[in-house]
């Protein structure tokens, strides 16, 4: 079991059949997550293919996390929260400027973490696509709206992923301070492999 502090990343090779538990230790902490087929980095998690094939915008127990080639990379096998976002993307220095202004250009952001922690296995910015935000609540509305709402997560809530093939799981424990996605106070998560 590994604690991942806010603003840090974590890269784990999850072999087929193995399970990764991600725990929101103190509650309301976004764990931005990407998955890659370790044998083919272009065969990576695809948020839009995943939500379309399950005909639902949110992830929870039973969600098959699909790749660009529509292979199952992993399945969500446990979830104490109820639903997780995969359409809100990760924070980046550049998108922080758009959302909050130029004074945020050099604040820490998930995309920087993905770039730094993915590099040792050859994951480059070109490989970074639209991620999962575990523990984040981004409701869509029937009239076409999208909002960032108070988290449904709380201390000790967790989600488990079981790999369907050998996958890299790349996590950024989100350092965002400009919106409530981390309860205005980014806190540690815990990652456990079994």
């Amino acid at each position: 079991m590994t604690a991942v502090l806010a603003g840090d990343g974590h890269l784990v090779m999850l072999p087929a059949g193995a399970t990764l538990r991600i725990t929101d230790l103190e509650g309301n902490q976004a764990a931005d997550t990407l998955l890659f087929d370790s044998a083919d980095l272009d065969n990576r998690y695809s948020a839009v293919d995943t939500v379309r094939e399950q005909a639902n915008a949110y992830l929870t127990t039973g969600s098959a996390l699909l790749s660009t080639d529509l292979d199952v990379l992993a399945t969500v096998t446990a979830d104490t929260v109820g639903r997780h976002d995969t359409l809100g993307g990760a924070c980046s220095q550049e998108s922080n400027v758009i959302r909050y202004g130029t004074h945020t250009r050099h604040q820490h952001a998930c995309r920087e973490t993905f770039i730094r922690w993915g590099a040792p296995v050859g994951i480059t910015p070109r490989h970074l696509t639209h991620n999962i935000n575990f523990f984040m609540n981004v409701p869509l509305t029937p009239d076409g709206g999208l909002t960032f709402a108070d988290g449904l997560s709380g201390p000790g809530q967790y989600v488990e992923l079981t790999a369907a093939r050998d996958v890299y799981v790349l996590i950024s424990n989100c350092p965002q301070l400009n919106n409530p996605c981390n309860g205005w106070n980014p806190t540690p998560i815990e990652v456990t492999l079994s």
Partner: peptide, 20 residues
């Protein structure tokens, strides 16, 4: 130079689930 459309960033910055 390798930049590309980012749909999640587009939607969340403009609080929309659709393009219009």
């Amino acid at each position: 130079d390798g930049d590309r459309l980012n749909v999640p960033d587009t939607l969340k910055a403009q609080m929309s689930a659709r393009i219009a």
